[in-house]
């Protein structure tokens, strides 16, 4: 086990290294940073362009710039935002909390919705409930996140106000002039959380349903039944435990995406998290911030992939480390 973990870790490091090289090339070499920087000022002289290039180190070849960037990054200096001049690390830290508040809540709501629904759907296979849930999950699975978000805004923010019902806020974390209370935060969170949870639970429900059905068809379930165990006991001790295995992987891989946040959801609801930061950085072609978010979120995905593999091997003794 220990050797397996070490070996996987050693594989992860060059992987991240190569990813950072490719991302660096994609961000810096494909585009023309200078033309973006001077886009608002077409009368920039040749000398100014040379000066700007020198200022941002753009006069050196890309591979040299990569090594400078990589060296600094390893020492914890991720550069500064081209727009605000703030350190990238502190910009990211400021946004991470907001993203986590949103995503962790959405994640818990997703599980609370999906686990009972998926389970009942599988236990009552081909019942009316099962058909209804299957149809619904297909629908939500095909619904673009932004469309669902706007439908919710239309209903709960616009129409509710028209009808004189208590309307929900359509964006931001707090009212602009209101106090920053927990109640405020809760009210602003309902719609974005609902958006993410509805779409994600469609996927989870499908997953859990098929996984439970597969386990129910296994011989050891029949054995458990035939030796006289009660239905609830079989369900809890034999079905649930085994059916939860693939869900563990799904959940952990989803956790990895927490960091990059829900780009789309945060854009719709103007939620000041990582996703919105990323979109702003892309719009301003703020290279250091873009690189920071891309590399950090890739690193997180690699780490959680690793955790998922190890945990899976630990939970399921049939899997051998190799």
């Amino acid at each position: 086990m220990g050797r397996y973990v070490v070996r996987r870790l050693l594989q992860a490091i060059p992987l991240l290294f190569v990813i950072s090289i490719i991302l660096f090339y994609a961000v810096f070499a494909l585009g023309d940073p200078v033309s973006r920087l001077i886009a608002n000022n077409p009368r920039t002289s040749e000398q100014d362009i040379a000066r700007i290039k020198k200022l941002y180190g753009l006069d050196k070849p890309v591979y040299q710039r990569y090594f400078v960037w990589a060296g600094n990054s390893l020492r914890g200096d991720w550069g500064s935002s081209l727009v605000t001049g703030e350190k990238v690390t502190s910009v990211l830290r400021g946004r991470l909390g907001n993203t986590l508040i949103l995503m962790v809540t959405a994640f818990l709501v997703t599980l609370l919705l999906a686990i009972p629904i998926g389970l009942i759907s599988a236990l009552r296979q081909y019942s009316r409930f099962d058909y209804f849930i299957t149809a619904l999950s297909f629908l939500f699975y095909s619904l673009p996140v932004f469309f669902l978000g706007f439908l919710l805004i239309y209903l709960f923010s616009v129409k509710f106000r028209e009808w004189g019902l208590p309307a929900l806020p359509s964006g931001k974390m707090y009212d602009v002039r209101g106090e920053r209370t927990l109640g405020q935060l809760f009210k602003h969170m309902i719609l974005p959380v609902l958006t993410i949870a509805l779409i994600n639970s469609a996927l989870y429900t499908r997953y859990l349903r098929s996984s439970v059905l597969e386990v129910m068809g296994q011989d050891y379930i029949r054995t458990a039944r035939s030796k006289g165990l009660m239905g609830s006991q079989v369900l809890r001790r034999h079905v649930m435990k085994n059916a939860a295995l693939p869900l563990v992987t799904l959940v952990l891989l989803q956790v990895a995406t927490l960091f990059s946040g829900a780009v789309v959801t945060e854009t719709i609801f103007a939620w000041p998290g990582m996703g919105l930061l990323f979109i702003d950085a892309a719009r301003n072609v703020d290279y250091p911030v873009l690189m920071g978010i891309l590399v950090a979120s890739s690193a997180l995905i690699i780490i959680f992939n690793l955790i998922a593999d190890i945990l899976y091997a630990y939970l399921d003794p049939r899997i051998k480390y190799s």
Partner: peptide
């Protein structure tokens, strides 16, 4: 397959937006 793993380790939507942003 390492290359495939690598591609799968980058958040897809972020990668697409980045590429589209730098390529125009």
């Amino acid at each position: 397959m390492s290359f495939v793993d690598m591609m799968l380790s980058v958040p897809l939507l972020l990668l697409i937006v980045t590429l589209a942003a730098v390529l125009g």
